[in-house]
Design a binder for these strands. Structure first.
Lengths: 153, 153
DNA sequence: GAACACCTGTTGAAGATTCAACTAATTCTG
DNA sequence: CAGAATTAGTTGAATCTTCAACAGGTGTTC
């Protein structure tokens, strides 16, 4: 077995900055949303995607895809959101296997309140402290990552 | 309450690319390490930090800091790593409250094997598909994020 | 040096996520 | 159209993480 192509010093530094930073940032956003609005980031993400969908509803599989979650996880999380009254699930006329997750009015309001705080925190710890051209680079890079993962998966 | 400063279209696009990309990438790396070597990313991270420390050992609190984990989580994870024989914990002479986590030889070998595969995957889905100047931008940006979080926390 | 606040690390229970197994509906194939 | 293969979504158990409470050690203050 041949020697792998280890990262050089710069690559290693940049990769680690990203790993650390993204873990810490996610954790911070999560705690922020949780203490102020009782929502985890992944619950928030679900509400966002539903709010943007036509008629504020989405098939479970689509929602899972949009929110980067497994179907099983989405099922569990939706049950919780449903018991909080932020979401409800109803059948699908065309495909009797299918289930639509709908955002309730209450869910929309909760999202609206949360988003107002969330965007400030995202600015405070990310957007506003990054050079705009570096942000554009991040956009390009992670778009490429998503594309690559899509091809492989 | 005043209207928040929402993100503009570009910022939103870039931010979402990052959120999606980092979630998917982390998940992919996790599954990769888990199937090939039975290690989660956070276990791997712990082994890496220990391997780089003088005498391959670190106080629990330091290790938690380096690996971006809570102390409680580290305690639990170390118990698991210990029962796999990759780590062991021993007391600290100076401070009788303290505990050193040590990397065992077996742990070092397991890390070595895992790292060889891991670096290839990191290259395949991140380093090698990103323009080097964009990678540098990521390094700058997340260094700033870490600094910002450090100041606030 | 006694009383106090603070720090270190662990624990167990509650909560969330993963994994494999499952039901039921649709689609494909001959 | 029967039967096999896929797909949608859920479920419960195992695993992992978070949270609050705790035991014990350090250090500071008067």
């Amino acid at each position: 077995m041949s020697e792998p192509r280890w990262l050089d010093a710069d690559q290693q530094r940049d990769w680690r900055a990203f790993v650390d930073g993204s873990v810490r940032l996610t954790e911070l956003l999560d705690r922020d949303l949780k203490t102020k609005h009782g929502l985890s980031v992944s619950e928030y993400e679900i509400l966002v995607r539903l709010s943007e969908a036509p008629e504020r509803r989405l098939r479970m599989a689509e929602l899972a895809e949009h929110a980067s979650q497994s179907r099983s996880r989405l099922s569990h999380t939706c049950s919780r959101l449903e018991s909080k009254g932020l979401v409800f699930r109803g059948g699908c006329p065309n495909d009797k296997r299918g289930v639509y997750a709908h955002l309730t009015d209450e869910g929309f309001d909760a999202l609206d309140r949360a988003a107002r705080d969330h965007v400030e925190t995202v600015r405070d710890f990310f957007i506003d402290i990054i050079d705009p051209s570096d942000l554009a680079a991040i956009g390009r890079a992670f778009t490429a990552v998503n594309k690559r993962i899509g091809e492989a998966g």
